[in-house]
């Protein structure tokens, strides 16, 4: 019994002494940290996805507090609301940026892009693209092994087994940009997010000449430039046999959709414009094509 009491007493005294030492050490070597960092961190979503370019939300919070000009910082997951909140708390100007969504720019579904061989290696886009052209003749298209699916922390991207192409769920997508970096073909782009997930974009990245594209895939952009001519907002540019619609300039007027001879321009969440009467012969077939595309 005596031993027991003695032990407890010794430990108590020792504990007390060390606590005092620790107290003074903590006082002496205290690291001064801006308390606002903790507050800002709490405002951020806490996904630690790295979409802002920093290692995590803590690093982003530090940058927000330390930098005077925060116009270059943006949390894609939290969006404008979070940025506004953090900026007003810190008394700085909030960066202006609208919501964005990841978009897979390939329309080469199985029916349009015939398979020319079968790949038996590691099921990874990075591996396949470092080895060869892929299972179709198009060297720019989606490989469908899902490197983007693997990196998405929000379960927002899936490879559709019917089309063999990755598809983004706009409701879940936070535009963190992880998939953009993961795609070895550079097919994924962050585009302006319209209400009701409306979108018009060129679902092709092929820089091959028209004839080569046609051989490999029936849904590819052949760089004919018809869309560029018809666009009233100058949002479309054709470079290296490939059309690109700038999502910041596009007003979703849909004029280009009907012009496209291969249906490479995809329309999502809207009905196409009624066909114009001046070229009645060729148009109807294309339009029905465009419609089925939209459903897919």
């Amino acid at each position: 019994m005596k031993v027991l009491i003695l032990t407890v007493l010794t430990l108590c005294v020792l504990g007390g002494l060390l606590a005092i030492v620790l107290y003074f050490v903590a006082r002496k070597f205290k690291v001064e940290e801006d308390p606002r960092i903790d507050d800002v961190e709490k405002m951020l979503p806490g996904a630690n996805c790295g979409g802002c370019g920093f290692a995590g939300c803590r690093a982003m919070a530090e940058a927000l507090v330390k930098q005077d000009d925060i116009s270059s910082l943006y949390c894609p997951v939290g969006g404008a609301d979070v940025m506004k909140g953090a900026a007003s708390y810190l008394g700085k100007a909030a960066p202006e940026k609208g919501p964005e969504v990841a978009t897979v720019r390939c329309g080469g579904v199985c029916s349009k892009r015939p398979k020319t061989n079968s790949f038996d290696g590691a099921k990874s886009c990075a591996v396949a693209s470092s080895l060869y052209v892929g299972e179709s003749a198009c060297s720019f298209g989606c490989l469908g092994y899902g490197d983007c699916v693997e990196v998405c922390q929000f379960g927002a991207i899936k490879v559709n087994p019917e089309t063999g192409i990755a598809e983004v769920d706009p409701d879940k997508c936070t535009a963190c940009g992880a998939c953009v970096k993961a795609c070895p073909k550079g097919l994924i782009e962050l585009r302006k997010k319209w209400p009701k997930d409306r979108a018009v974009y060129v679902a092709c990245r092929s820089k091959d000449k028209g004839a080569v594209v046609m051989k490999a895939c029936k849904a590819g952009c052949i760089g004919c430039g018809k869309c560029e001519k018809v666009c009233p907002f100058g949002a479309i540019t054709v470079e290296n046999n490939l059309a690109f619609i700038d999502s910041q300039k596009c007003k979703l007027c849909r004029k280009c959709v009907n012009e496209c001879p291969t249906g490479a321009i995809k329309l999502v969440g809207m009905e196409p414009l009624p066909k114009e009467p001046k070229t009645p012969a060729a148009k109807p077939a294309e339009k029905s094509d465009a419609k089925t595309e939209t459903k897919e």
């Binding site: 590691a122 990874s124 470092s130």
Partner: peptide, 12 residues
């Protein structure tokens, strides 16, 4: 296991 496929990617 496609060991070399990944090793080659890593090497590159």
């Amino acid at each position: 296991i496609p060991l070399l496929d990944y090793i080659r990617l890593g090497k590159q």
